[in-house]
Nucleic acid binder design. Sequence first.
DNA 1: AAAGATGCGTGACGAAAGTCACGCTCCTGT
DNA 2: ACAGGAGCGTGACTTTCGTCACGCATCTTT
Lengths: 192, 192
Amino acid sequence: MHEQLFDYINRYSKQTLSEQEMSIITSVMEPKRLRKKQYFLEEGEICANTGFIVKGATRQYSLDEEGNEHIMQLAIENWWIVDRNSFMNQVPSAYFIEAWEDCELLLLPRAKLDTLLSIPAINTMFWQMSENNHIAAQKRLDDTISLSAIKRYENFQRLYPQIIQRFPSHQIASYLGVSRETLSRARSRSVR
Amino acid sequence: MHEQLFDYINRYSKQTLSEQEMSIITSVMEPKRLRKKQYFLEEGEICANTGFIVKGATRQYSLDEEGNEHIMQLAIENWWIVDRNSFMNQVPSAYFIEAWEDCELLLLPRAKLDTLLSIPAINTMFWQMSENNHIAAQKRLDDTISLSAIKRYENFQRLYPQIIQRFPSHQIASYLGVSRETLSRARSRSVR
DNA sequence: AAAGATGCGTGACGAAAGTCACGCTCCTGT
DNA sequence: ACAGGAGCGTGACTTTCGTCACGCATCTTT
C-alpha cells in the first residue's frame, strides 16, 4: 500500500528513498478507509491530517450563506487532500472534504510533519507540491477571470480528462463556477 | 535599503538574522530602480529574478487573444513580485509585470536562490510565503466563483484598503474580473 | 418490484454583466 | 499654455448566465 506513495515521491523529488526513510514513512503515515459520502474534513474542524489518495476520489467544497456548494478541488489517485490553511496554521477550516468514491488514504498527521520534512526527498516533494499547487491555482484563477464558461470547460477537459469520467457534471460545473444548466448547454453547443 | 527587507524577514520567520546572514543577503540581493511603466518582466521572457518592493507599486497581468489585460496581482511595498512558474521552472512567462509607480526593488537572481535558501530564516520565510500566497490564491478563487461583483469589491476593499488608494479603479475591476463600467455602477449603488 | 433519489437535458424568463458611445475632469508632456 | 491622453461616470442596448420548471432515465434502497 505504501509503494504507490514511494513511487510518487521518487518521481516528484527525482531522488531515491533509502530503506530507512521508507520505514519512517511507513510508520508515520497510517492507512485509513473512507466510504463514499464520508467526510475527511468538515467545516469548523481543524484539519489534522494531510491525506494521500491511494484509491478513490474526493471533493473539497465550501458552503455559502445560501447553502450553495462551491467546489475547490476534485481529487483522485495520487493526489493530496488537505486544507493547507487549516493544517499549517491550525485554524478552523472553511471547507468540507468528502469521499466521492470509497477511498483508501494514507494519513500524515500534523504532529508528524516535521519528522517527514527532515527526509530530503520528502522535503523537496513538499516544496514542489506547494509550488505546483500554487501555480495551478493561479492558472485556474486566470482562466476564471479571463474565459467564458465554454472555454473553461474545454481547458478543464484537456487538463483533467480522468476527472471528467469520475465526477457527475454538476460537480464539474460548480468547479468551473457556472450553473449545471449552463454547462449542459455549453457542452451541447460545443462539438459534443 | 536592505533594512526594510531584514525587518520583513524577521517578522515573517520569527527568527533573527545574524550579522553574517545579513551580509550574505546584502551581497546577493542587488538594488534596482524602475520608472513608472517600465517592465520587470515581459511575456515570453524567463523570469530571472524575484523582486522585493522597497518602494513603489507594480501590477502583474496576462494578455488574452483579444488584447484584453487580466490583472493577477497588484503589489506595493513589502510585497514580492515574481512569476513563480517561470522563475522556478525556467520556462517562458505568460505574464507582464510592470511598474505602476516609480519603484525601488531588491532583486534575488534565480542563480542565487539556493544560497539564500540555506539561511534558515529565509528558508522559513519562503516556505511561509509560498504557503500564504497559495492560500490567498485559493481564497480569491473561491470568492470569484462564489460571489457577485459587488461582494467581491467589498471583500477586496476590506482586505487591501491601501491598494485601492494607489491604483485606478479600472485596474481593480480587472483584478476582480469585471468590466470597469460594472465596477463603477456597483460602487455607486453600494453605500458610497 | 416499487418508490424515491440522483443525474441530466431543455424551454421560458429575468437578472447580471459586457459592450458601445458620449461627455466631463484632471493630469502630463512638450 | 495648450493638446492629448487617462480616468471615470452614465445611458442604451445586447449577451451571457442563473433560476425555475418540467420530463425522462438510471441508480439505490427497502
